[in-house]
């Protein structure tokens, strides 16, 4: 089961709202798909993101996965330690493996309303056969 306190995207990011700041990471399912991460590119602090648009990526030797911003906002922190050591991303994707934080543009509570609930995301995983 996926954590109940988060919201999700179809592209396997999770989002956690605290005040007007959203923390973003990738789900355990997505992390499990990534064997041998070679490089992580995170957005830089200050960058404005648009909901659903690519804002970074995670690379393995033979594949690249784009990171999509779950909501629109301004990047206010990035987990820069991951670029040197990506281990937390796969070991603890919902905790120390977080990727970046956004200060939400507009109404913070509304921002997350477009995202999948834990149940809906779980259903998506099951319907994709995972």
């Amino acid at each position: 089961m996926v954590p109940g306190n988060l919201r999700y995207t179809k592209t396997h990011e999770w989002a956690l709202l605290e005040g007007d700041v959203v923390t973003v990471g990738i789900t355990k399912f997505a992390a499990d798909q990534l064997t041998d991460i070679t490089y992580i590119e995170l957005p830089s602090v200050g960058k404005k993101t648009i909901a659903g648009s690519a804002c970074g990526n995670i690379e393995t030797v033979k594949a690249v996965s784009d990171l999509y911003s779950p909501v629109g906002g301004e990047v206010c922190a990035v987990n820069s330690g991951l670029t040197a050591d990506a281990a937390p991303l796969t070991a603890d994707p919902y905790g120390t493996g977080w990727l970046f934080k956004l200060r939400v543009t507009g109404n913070a509570a509304d921002a997350l309303s477009g995202l999948l609930t834990p149940g809906a995301y779980q259903n998506q995983l099951e319907s994709e056969g995972h």
């Binding site: 030797v61 033979k62 690249v64």
Partner: peptide, 12 residues
């Protein structure tokens, strides 16, 4: 560093 290249990243 082949993820930069067309056979992996295609239009990007």
């Amino acid at each position: 560093l082949q993820t930069r290249e067309q056979h992996i990243r295609r239009e990007k």
